[in-house]
């Protein structure tokens, strides 16, 4: 496990937000976001729905574009004029709430297509990498099935493997357990915990507070498009510094 302590303060952040704003029509969804993430760091973003968590994460691979401010990923600033957004995206893995596997391809082909068509690896090499990653998410025996034949938990693990195949520098998880049946949440979270232990840089939007506490280096709490609190997980869960954080936890943990 890579400890953040190894990094010198001068180590440039792999993700940097500087005064980022975004609007959906008139709705001001991100309001002056400043955030630095260093290599190997695991950030959990939480907050009430509609607070802009997903939008923030989706700005990192430009599935959403920001309108003001700067976002710099590993030294590359994200602008409209960025010549090769596709290469950049291929180096950022993303896992979605609704899996979004390609239903017309086998599990194996889901993992091969990006390596073969974006990273230009020969098919045979892509397939062997794909199989390694299916092994890693404990689903190697399903390689020739179609996504529709798998359970939700299995599909989500395939989606994680698909992202990992691209050898990403950063992994983004956008509420990846929110549409799973309760008994399948753990198998997916276990895979993410393993990944965290290996030192992957991760940004995770989640409502799983127990998981957040275990895996996060830092909790980012959002409310109405703003980051209102950044804190160590232990400190955040023991007593958030912000009023919004305290209210949020009181709601989340109500039955917990």
């Amino acid at each position: 496990m890579t400890a953040i302590a190894d990094k010198t303060p001068a180590d440039p952040p792999i993700i940097r937000f500087e005064g980022v704003h975004k609007w959906f029509g008139n709705f001001h969804v991100l309001r002056h976001i400043d955030l630095d993430v260093v290599r190997g760091e695991k950030i959990v973003i939480c907050g009430p729905s509609g607070s802009g968590k997903s939008t923030l994460v989706r700005c990192i691979n430009q599935l959403e574009t920001h309108q003001r401010g700067r976002i710099v990923i590993d030294g590359t600033e994200l602008t409209d004029r960025l010549a090769d957004i596709h290469t950049l995206r291929s180096e950022i893995g993303m896992v979605f709430q609704s899996y979004n596997l390609f239903p017309h391809m086998t599990v194996l082909d889901n993992l091969v297509v990006g390596q073969h068509r974006v990273r230009q690896l020969p098919r045979s090499e892509a397939e062997s990498i794909a199989r390694q990653h299916l092994e890693r998410v404990r689903i190697a025996d399903q390689a020739s099935k179609y996504p529709g034949q798998l359970s939700g938990g299995q599909q989500q693990r395939v989606a994680i493997a698909r992202a990992l195949c691209m050898k990403p520098k950063i992994m983004l998880f956008d509420e990846v357990t929110s549409s799973l049946d309760p008994e399948m949440v753990k198998e997916v979270l276990d895979v993410i915990v393993d990944l965290a232990d290996e030192g992957m840089t991760m940004m995770v939007v989640t409502h799983e507070m127990g998981f957040a506490r275990e895996v996060a280096d830092r909790i980012v709490f959002m409310e109405e498009g703003c980051i209102v609190e950044e804190n160590k997980p232990a400190a955040f869960f023991n007593g958030p510094a912000s009023e919004g954080g305290r209210f949020f936890l009181s709601q989340v943990l109500h039955y917990g």
Binding site: R89, S90, F96, N100, F102, A159
Partner: peptide, 24 residues
């Protein structure tokens, strides 16, 4: 979500359409 997943792994417009969207 299919467009987004295809774009997220780095496929450009034509590959997204040709490999993911149009077949479906």
């Amino acid at each position: 979500g299919q467009y987004e997943a295809a774009e997220a792994i780095g496929l450009d417009y034509w590959k997204t359409m040709g490999l993911v969207v149009l077949p479906q």
